[in-house]
Nucleic acid binder design. Structure first.
Lengths: 236, 236
DNA sequence: AATAGTATTAACTCGATGGTTAATACAAGG
DNA sequence: CCTTGTATTAACCATCGAGTTAATACTATT
C-alpha cells in the first residue's frame, strides 16, 4: 500500500508534469496551476519542493540535458551514421526539441545556458570525432566542421522544430511514420553526397582557412543572482 | 509641423513597435504596455486601432508574411543559388525567423496558419522550380524534392533560429559577419555536393530495410548501431 | 463660433497567477 | 499516548495585464 505522504513521489510527479507543461508552453506560458493539476498535487507543493517556478524550470532543463547528452556517448560513426543517429534521437523526443526551441527564443545572447558545461564538452567531443573522421577521409577536407556539426543538427531538428513548415512542404506531420521514412531516406542520400570529394573549384586558393581554434571560452561570469525579472532581456 | 492627431501615424508606430515586441516575446509573452511605450502612444490606442492584442498579432504576421514572400519572386536559380538566396534572405531578418519560431511553438497541429493560402502557393511554386531544375539535371533524380525544400530552409534558418546552438558549435553569433561568411562558404560546398550524382548505391533493398542495415553499409569502418528508439507510432 | 465627429488620455475593472501564511494531518520515536 | 518534525492543504495576497469607461482635446465643416 502506498503511503499517504511521500515527498519523493510528489517531486517525481511534479517533475513529470512540469516537463510536459514547460515543453508545451515554455517558462512564461506555463501555468503553475496546470502543473499542479496535471501532477495531482497541491499547488503549494511546487513551491515547497522547488522554491519557484523558475527553479523548477531549470531543474527540468538540467535533467533533460543530462539525460539527452548521455544518449550521445562517444561513438565513432561515419558521417551518415552520425546524421541518422541524430535524427532518430531527435525524432524520438519532441519535448526535447521544444525545450531547445523555447531556450532559443528566450535566452539573451550573453546569458549562460543551463548545463552549459556539459553541453560544451559534448560538442567538443563531437567535433573531435568529426575531425578524426575527416582525417580518415570519411569527410571531405574542405568542409568546416563546426558548420557541419551545426548543419547535421539542423537537418535532424528542423522538421520537428517547425512542424508547420514541414506540413506545408510535405503535407505530412513530422512525427508520422511516413514522414520519418521519407526523411531517413533523404538524409541517407544527403550524407552519401556530403562524403564525396568536392567537384573542381575554380578558386583553389580559397580552401585554406585558419584552423578552427577550440570553442571560445566564455569567462565564468558569476553575476549576482537577481532572477527577479521574469521577462528576460531578449533580442530586441 | 507634424499634426498633433494623426491616426495613420499612430497605427504605423504601433505596428512597428508590435513587430519588435512580438518577435522578442511571442504573443503570450508580449506586453501591451511595452508596445504602447515603445510606440510612444497611449495604451488605449492599441485597442482603438486593432481591437485586441491577438488581432494586432495577426495583423503583424499577415504583413510580415506577405512582405517576405514578395521577396521570393519566382526565379529559376540553380540549387546553390536557391540555398544561398534563402540564407541571405533569412540572415537579413531575424524578426521573421523568430515569428516563424513562435508560430511553430504555439500553433496546434490542425490549426490554420496566418496567410496559409499565400504560403501554400509560394511553396508549390518553389517545388515547381525545383522540379524544373531536376528535369534539367541540376538536381539529382533520387532526391525527394519536398524534403529537399525543407532542408534548404533548415540549413538557412537553423543557425538563426537556434543562436545558442550556433554559439556552442562555432563560438560565433549567427548574426556576426564572420559567421555569415563561414556559413556562406559552407553552404556553397554543400550545394555543390548536393548537385552531384549519387555514388553507386547497392540496390539490394537496403533502402527499404531497417535503418541499422543501411547504416552499417554506408560506413567504411566498423560501426555500432544507431539508437534504437523508433517507437512505432500510429501514422498520421 | 458653434457643432459634430474623432483621436487621445487618465483612470478604472476584473480575472489570472505566482507566491505566502498558517492551519492540519500524518508518521516516527520515545 | 504524546511529542516533534514534516508533508499536505485551504485560504489568502499582491501584482500584473488585457481590455473598458468616460472624459477631453483637437480638427474640419458649416
Amino acid at each position: 500500500m502506498e503511503p499517504v505522504r511521500d515527498l519523493a513521489r510528489t517531486r517525481d510527479r511534479i517533475l513529470k508534469a512540469a516537463l510536459a507543461e514547460f515543453a508545451a508552453h515554455g517558462l512564461a506560458g506555463a501555468r503553475c496551476n496546470a502543473i499542479a493539476r496535471r501532477a495531482r498535487v497541491n499547488h503549494r507543493m511546487l513551491f515547497y519542493c522547488f522554491g519557484s517556478k523558475e527553479n523548477l524550470y531549470r531543474e527540468i532543463l538540467r535533467r533533460k540535458f543530462t539525460e539527452r547528452t548521455a544518449l550521445f556517448e562517444r561513438r565513432d560513426d561515419d558521417l551518415a551514421g552520425t546524421i541518422l543517429r541524430w535524427y532518430e534521437a531527435v525524432a524520438g523526443d519532441q519535448d526535447w526539441v521544444r525545450l531547445l526551441e523555447w531556450e532559443a527564443l528566450s535566452t539573451a545572447p550573453a546569458q549562460k545556458l543551463v548545463g552549459e558545461r556539459e553541453r560544451r564538452s559534448y560538442i567538443s567531443e563531437a567535433l573531435e570525432a568529426l575531425r578524426r573522421s575527416q582525417a580518415n577521409g570519411g569527410i571531405p577536407r574542405d568542409l568546416n566542421l563546426a558548420q557541419l556539426h551545426l548543419s547535421i543538427i539542423a537537418l535532424a531538428v528542423f522538421p520537428l522544430a517547425f512542424p508547420q513548415m514541414t506540413r506545408l512542404a510535405t503535407g505530412l506531420s513530422p512525427t508520422s511514420a511516413r514522414f520519418r521514412r521519407q526523411r531517413l531516406r533523404f538524409l541517407r542520400s544527403v550524407s552519401a553526397r556530403l562524403q564525396m570529394k568536392s567537384p573542381e573549384r575554380s578558386r583553389s586558393g580559397a580552401v585554406r582557412e585558419k584552423p578552427r581554434t577550440a570553442l571560445a571560452k566564455t569567462g565564468s561570469r558569476r553575476l549576482s543572482n537577481p532572477i527577479r525579472t521574469m521577462r528576460a532581456e531578449v533580442a530586441e
